[in-house]
């Protein structure tokens, strides 16, 4: 089993992962292999454990049973180098979580400069190029609260990219946005997908899922119910719970 976990092409691997909040079991026997450059979309009704699952991948949440390997390192309670693992795993949150006391540019420079030890000029250069990539270089000197929700989320993506991560996690990145701002964030994510980034996205945006996902994972009540390619998932869902969910979300 250990050998499989360190399989070179698998960036993230979960084996028999269980998680409880008190008596409530949030994750039930999750097994998952994610390979380099893969794009995974996780969907499911609210409370199905999809956010919990993605937050376990950089150990913002702890799992109680099973193994999670990320870039070959096992995540567990007494590990010493969690911050090293986290530096390689970018994360984008539903509520953006930008640092309000720092400018957009400083938000993007913080990680490389403070954690990776890259000097200020280079960090600034990198930040500007990432802000270019998400198409808001002109906002660099503003504070987050001066930006729209869509712009803030794009800054959050740029901030993660500045760390040059191996994997990007997206935890419902468009759920807190006004409808007209969803597409600008999704466009950014589509471009990122084209560049070959390994991405794991919790989202209800089924158009995005069809367009970029290699695999769609459907979760319900803490377990992976169905796992398939977008074509199969949408055209030929196997499980009844998947069918019900698709009916609700696509109607």
């Amino acid at each position: 089993m250990g050998k499989e976990a360190n399989n070179e092409s698998s960036v993230i691997s979960l084996k028999g992962v269980n998680k409880w909040y008190g008596d409530f079991q949030a994750l039930k026997d999750i097994n998952l292999e994610i390979h380099s450059k893969e794009k995974i979309v996780i969907c499911g009704p609210s409370g199905s454990g999809k956010s919990t699952l993605i937050r376990c991948l950089n150990r913002l949440e702890a799992h109680q049973e099973g193994q999670i390997h990320v870039t070959g390192i096992e995540l567990h309670e007494t590990m010493k180098d969690i911050d090293i693992v986290r530096q390689d795993i970018g994360m984008v949150f539903q509520s953006f979580n930008l640092f309000p006391h720092l400018t957009v540019l400083e938000n993007c420079m913080a990680g490389p400069n403070w954690v990776r030890g890259i000097d200020e000029n280079e960090a600034k250069e990198r930040a500007m190029s990432m802000l270019n990539q998400v198409k808001i270089p002109e906002q660099a000197d503003k504070y987050p609260e001066q930006l729209s929700g869509g712009q803030q989320q794009r800054v959050a993506i740029a901030r993660s990219l500045c760390m040059q991560p191996k994997v990007m996690l997206f935890d419902e990145p468009t759920s807190a946005l006004d409808p007209e701002m969803v597409s600008e964030v999704l466009d950014t994510m589509v471009e990122l997908a084209k560049s070959g980034m390994t991405m794991i996205c919790v989202t209800h945006e089924m158009g995005f899922a069809k367009q970029v996902a290699d695999r769609i994972i459907f979760m319900d009540e803490g377990e992976i119910v169905e796992e398939n390619t977008p074509e199969e998932f949408f055209n030929n869902p196997q499980n009844n719970r998947t069918k019900t969910f698709l009916n609700q979300i696509l109607s």
């Binding site: 913002l60 986290r86 979580n97 403070w114 993660s160």
Partner: peptide
């Protein structure tokens, strides 16, 4: 707590 989570996700240590 989102501020802690965002910082941790970037790999910051708690003192920082």
């Amino acid at each position: 707590k989102g501020q802690w989570e965002a910082s941790r996700a970037l790999g910051f240590k708690s003192g920082l």
